[in-house]
Design a protein around this nucleic acid. Sequence first.
DNA 1: CTTTTGACTGAGT
DNA 2: AACTCAGCCAAAA
Length: 106
Amino acid sequence: MSYFEKVYEIVKKIPAGKVATYGQIARLLGTPERAKIVGWALHKNPYYGEVPCHRVVNRNGEISSGFAFGGPFEQKKMLEKEGIIFDENGKINLNKYLWNPYEFQE
DNA sequence: CTTTTGACTGAGT
DNA sequence: AACTCAGCCAAAA
């Protein structure tokens, strides 16, 4: 299994109403220094429709640029639909919405 | 095969 | 607090 597929597996486990950072995902894979690879994997997003990549944000809690969903507004709308609230800066309150994979439910 | 790049992050200015 | 610099490594050109 390539690193990409591992990333997709993690992202698919993110519950609705929660978000995760690239670094966090990379850490779950045991490779915290490959956060960039995680982001890149999602950029390709070959499993569009299966992988909720809209729930993955950068360390700042902001939606990353690139958007494979058709536009930033679409992604933001999707997240709000999940129950995530953006602050006045268009950022997500990670302290509240960051996903906590305690046992990493396989 | 070699080089560039990138949905990032952490440290430094 | 905001901006910049460098490092990390796999995939794409």
